[in-house]
Design a protein around this nucleic acid. Structure first.
Lengths: 205, 205
DNA sequence: GTCTATAAGGTGATAGAC
DNA sequence: GTCTATCACCTTATAGAC
């Protein structure tokens, strides 16, 4: 009777997922304001009122998507282990982020759309969860530097540069492809090699 | 009688500029679809019909803004001199781009909004002007590498990484400030130092 | 659970007075 | 050149039949 929170039947679960998949496609391409329920309904193969049977409002669909995204978005950063080999831990993080940009470009653009516009819906999560995690990992990095296993570097700007260089291949995909012209996804291999070199030279003591 | 192309009087020129300034503020924050003429009119201190006296339509305002932006956007890249000292030329380019992110964050976000959404209005300029310029500078960089003055590096991905790391401080400003908390613009100094080190280590043979 | 019909409000653009 | 008034359309959301 009132789905949206916890779908009961198989059909409800399936439709909820179909809607979120369609909404991801639309929101990531046009932003929140630029997307309409008509577009999402059409992409989901449902009628507009039926859409609103599963979610109470447009903003509820967007919120569900953002919540789901924030769950997974920080995983690669969480995986950095304080007792690993510093340079390799960070290079593995770079590769994981690049892999996410290739596998989940729509999620990356959904996030980018949100931040570029001032993060109106996720500022609490950024100031809370995200900042805490970054602070924690920054201390790990500082520890590595103190031990001499890592070249001295501002940990926050290091993390920013890892985010920006990797997410660039998802968020600015249209520009990247226009400049590299014919190649399909082949440039991801080159990007991986380039970023490995870039950060290896930066981080090796 | 028909401004928008070439304003004749001083008042027309001033109003046109006021409108573009207001439109930059609004479009860069909300994207094209998310912005309304009401918002722009209010920000410009004009009535909506008066706005449409100076520009024939909403899209015309946006186009004027984008055209103006593309004029200046490529300047820092153009300034790279083939007969300069390679590493210093490129590091100066990094600094110029970072300076632009600090001075013109709204322009950067206007551009980012456009690209993230697939560059619907500027794909021709990206495939034309921008690509040509990047190809040209890529050849310059390859020449430097061949001469041994620069470490071997993929010139295209080098340029992408310079764009992404510098523009990040404008486009993802909300996130950067949330994570670095109290500091105002102070982090730009740290960013400049960090990026100088990052690219110096990458590029020095 | 899903549809048609429609309400209610916003939005781009125009007409016409001043 | 600038305003008030207004049109035509689009968009979110709801009501009610089936």
């Amino acid at each position: 009777m009132m789905p949206g929170k916890q779908p009961r039947t198989r059909i409800q679960k399936k439709n909820t997922e179909t809607i979120l998949e369609a909404a991801l496609e639309v929101f990531s391409q046009h932003g929140f304001r630029g997307s309409t329920l008509d577009q999402i309904a059409k992409a989901a193969g449902l009628s507009k009122p039926n859409l609103l049977y599963y979610f109470p409002s447009k903003v509820a669909i967007h919120r569900a998507l953002i919540d789901e995204l924030m769950q997974n978005w920080l995983d690669p950063l969480r995986k950095i282990e304080a007792d690993g080999e510093p340079v390799e831990e960070l290079l593995a993080y770079v590769l994981r982020k690049l892999e996410m940009a290739r596998e989940f470009p729509r999620e990356s653009r959904l996030f980018a759309n949100e931040i570029v516009q001032g993060a109106p819906n996720i500022m609490d999560k950024i100031e809370g969860e995200l900042k805490s995690l970054v602070d924690e990992k920054a201390r790990v990095i500082e520890g590595w530097i103190a031990s001499g296993a890592l070249a001295p570097v501002n940990p926050y700007h290091l993390i920013f540069s890892i985010w920006s260089t990797t997410q660039h291949y998802a968020d600015f995909d249209a520009q990247v492809r226009a400049i590299l012209q014919p190649e399909g996804d082949a440039h991801f291999e080159d990007a991986a090699a380039y970023l490995d070199t870039l950060f290896r030279r930066m981080l090796t003591p």
